[in-house]
Design a protein around this nucleic acid. Structure first.
Lengths: 229, 229
DNA sequence: GTCTTGACTGTACGGCGTATAGTTCTCAAG
DNA sequence: CTTGAGAACTATACGCCGTACAGTCAAGAC
């Protein structure tokens, strides 16, 4: 009568959501490229083909991951705040989630089919913008832009591609890039040489990168806002 | 003495740049995923391993493609124009190139190692921003942002993922997405339903999408510009 | 004529996604 | 208690992929 619970030694049943859990952990730890059907199957203790009972294809699995990520994004912004603050809150929530899953940006960029979690976030963003006075066409454009701004802010943080490496490795790679830029011929690339440090690193941490990116976006939207009614 | 020229019936010699040419054409026509070593080799009439004489790995080939694309970007903006106009010109040039190669955005996003062509474009962008009065740190951040804005503007144009399909196929896919959004429960997703058309299509063409995206970016930069000296 | 070397070819390996068919377990109906 | 049906897997195999490694062969150099 009661559903089968996995006993101490027994093998736990597989389920769609359990597979997604493992897959997301795998992608976060070892990168999206390491997420293969075979490896995931091994990790959850089944044959590769077993996964095809729960997902029609690898693409559907990836869509499942994307949906899981969308699900984490909070859409409960303070309705008392003014609209730029609300928009900012949405963007910050997006970025928080993306930063907490190192594979999330890549996943969201790559997945085509989208579901309710994505609709929910988009709906909320559109609502903020429509309430601010933008017409549907502009609101759509800005909402799209907000999503992509979040994705690229995370992906353009220096060192993003080296996620999954140890800290000294990352530092070493960054150091090398910095030297490469700083060693360019200064007569041909004066500005690049001058900016070798900020172009390759985050200085005192990534906070400035994110704050500035968000500020830039919000400032643009404000500047293009429809006249106050 | 004279270098071997391919006669009428003779087989032309392979060269790094010829391979890149073919590869870029292949990627543009059939998508980046269709660009495989084996297929490229077949297309240029050699064994797969022959390509490894000219490139250390597939990754290096891809980097070659990226470099070729960077090379096409014009950096000769009008020095008499004011800095926002110059920045806009750079961004427009980037977008022009990306739009003329349907695989370019994906290629640029994926390639890690960068060369002189990329440095040149970045140098010019930094110069514009430094002359405008931004310090190196802000200039770096804005230059990065400009690049990513260009990439994502192209990739977020509705229908981008369906590049390579015939026009009626694209129209059909777009129509289906539109209907999907328009058919959502209006009580739960009123704004999405309302914006079903602009969220899934470009209306009278993609011009508005690009113009608005560029305007948004430039407006943001202007708003954050350092005080006029 | 032999040697070097640049530009390839041939073969093979391990890994990938997944089609197809077969197996085993669970559990309600008889 | 038997049985049969479906759910949840396993086994095997196919055709791709990138590429390591070794062999081939024409064209100058001496």
């Amino acid at each position: 009568m009661a559903p089968v619970k996995a006993g101490e030694g027994e093998r736990a049943k597989l389920s769609r959501s359990a597979v997604v859990d493992h897959a997301l952990a795998l992608a976060d730890n070892d990168g999206v490229n390491a997420l293969t059907i075979r490896r995931l199957a091994t990790e959850v203790g089944v044959t590769p083909m077993a996964l095809y009972w729960h997902f029609r294809s690898k693409e559907e699995l990836m869509a499942g991951l994307a949906d899981r990520i969308w699900d984490e994004i909070r859409t409960d912004v303070d309705p008392a705040a003014d609209w730029p603050a609300q928009l900012r809150a949405m963007l910050e929530s997006l970025i928080d989630v993306l930063r907490s899953h190192s594979s999330a940006s890549t996943l969201l960029m790559g997945s085509e089919k989208l579901g309710p979690s994505h609709w929910q976030a988009t709906e909320k963003t559109l609502e903020i913008l429509r309430t601010a006075g933008f017409d549907p066409e502009h609101a759509s454009e800005i909402a799209r832009s907000a999503l992509w701004t979040g994705l690229t802010l995370v992906m353009s943080e220096p060192g993003f591609n080296d996620a999954g490496l140890t800290e000294p490795e990352r530092a070493e790679i960054q150091r090398r890039k910095q030297i490469e830029l700083a060693s360019l011929p200064p007569d041909r690339y004066p500005r690049l040489v001058e900016a070798a440090v900020p172009m390759t690193s985050c200085g005192d941490g990534p906070d400035f990168h994110y704050k500035f990116g968000i500020d830039l976006f919000i400032a643009g939207v404000r500047a293009l806002a429809p006249p106050e009614r």
